[in-house]
Amino acid sequence: MVDLLAAAGADTFANGTGIAWLAVDLSAVGALVSFACVRHAKYSQRFRLVWLTMAAVSLGGVGLWLANSVALLALRVHDSTLRYNVALGASALAIAVVGVLAGFLISGRTLQVPRLIIGGLTMGLSVGLSTFLTLDAISVQGTMEESLGLIGAAVLLSMAGCTATLWAAQVVRRIALRVVVSVLFAVGVAGVYYTALTALSFSIDPAIKTPTGVPLFDLVFPMFVIGALGLTVPITAVLVAPDRRDAVLAARQPVPAR
């Protein structure tokens, strides 16, 4: 199974599977926080965009981009030093957050199938593009080629997963079910990432000088710390904010006649 997830000329789990599990856990936590923010956004008028922005950062920034970047720490390309293009990585982060935010805005407050599908396709394309930019940011001593068929499969998987995620954000209310959906989202993110990774093949020439860029760990470690600390903002907001759904329902109750 591990061999099926490997890019040609690379070892996907060179540093053990623990890093992969850490990425999945990070993705699930980001999704769980995001779903809580979406719930508050559903019943908030004044701060709806703020809630959705926090949801997009949690889901796209932490649950997707940071999780994929952490998973990359386990990758080793045979006979080559890896370097990372920070500009491409930053672009992948921005696309992930903006694409997720667009998906939330398009899908709206209530479940409407046409808007759900358009939002899911928009978010899915952004997630797929972000994943491939994250991988394209890798520089090696040689060349890297991509399989168009597997790229297409990863994008289709991303679209399906994002549409299901938006549907769950609309209809799932119980906390236990949100946890289950968050885990499923993390599995989906991992599926898109490893499908995209298998689309890569490396041709290495050790005689080529070390490529420009930064070691991946030098970028991912501080971003991991920032992302973990950043999640405390939406978590704190969710904990201290009133239950907007109950407040809205209470406001709709008729006032008893005296």
Rank of each mutant, 00 (worst) to 15 (best):
A169M: 15
L135C: 00
G152A: 01
T143S: 14
A190K: 11
L177K: 00
T163C: 03
A153L: 13
A199S: 15
V183Y: 04
A96M: 15
A169G: 10
A196Q: 11
F132T: 11
W167D: 00
A168H: 06
T165R: 00
G128T: 06
L166D: 05
R83C: 06
R178W: 04
V113Q: 02
Q170Y: 07
F202R: 02
L157R: 00
T81G: 04
A90W: 13
L148T: 10
A169C: 13
A94S: 05
S182I: 08
L101M: 11
F104E: 09
L150F: 13
A153Q: 08
S107H: 11
L125W: 14
A94N: 01
T110R: 12
L156C: 15
S182A: 15
V86W: 14
T195K: 05
G161H: 08
L166I: 03
G191P: 12
F202Y: 13
A90H: 01
V179M: 08
L200K: 09
S147W: 09
F202V: 06
V127K: 01
V187G: 06
R174E: 03
T163K: 01
S107A: 13
S182T: 06
T122C: 13
A102G: 12
P114R: 03
W167Y: 15
A199K: 01
A87R: 10
V180G: 03
Y84G: 08
F132N: 09
L116D: 09
A137I: 05
G89L: 07
T195D: 07
Q170L: 03
V155N: 11
L88N: 10
V113T: 14
V113F: 02
T110I: 12
R174I: 00
L184N: 01
L150V: 04
F185R: 00
S91Q: 13
T143P: 03
M159P: 11
V155E: 04
V181G: 02
T122L: 09
V155A: 12
L111T: 07
L116S: 06
T143H: 08
T198W: 07
C162G: 13
R83A: 03
A154Q: 05
A153T: 10
C162Q: 14
G89E: 12
V97Y: 03
G103C: 02
I204N: 02
T81I: 15
G188F: 12
T81S: 09
L177D: 08
V171C: 09
R173C: 00
A94P: 00
S130M: 11
L129K: 01
T163E: 10
L148F: 14
L116A: 10
S126I: 11
I106E: 00
L166P: 07
A196D: 09
A169Y: 04
S130E: 04
L157Q: 04
A160T: 08
K209P: 09
A199V: 07
M144A: 00
T134M: 10
V97G: 03
A186D: 05
T165S: 08
A87W: 14
A137L: 07
Q112S: 14
I175S: 08
T163Y: 07
A199H: 02
L148R: 13
R173A: 14
S201Q: 09
A153K: 06
V127Y: 04
A92M: 14
I204G: 05
D136Q: 14
A102M: 02
L133F: 14
T210K: 04
A153V: 15
S126L: 07
D205R: 10
T195F: 03
L116T: 13
G152W: 12
V180Q: 03
A153F: 00
R109W: 04
L129G: 11
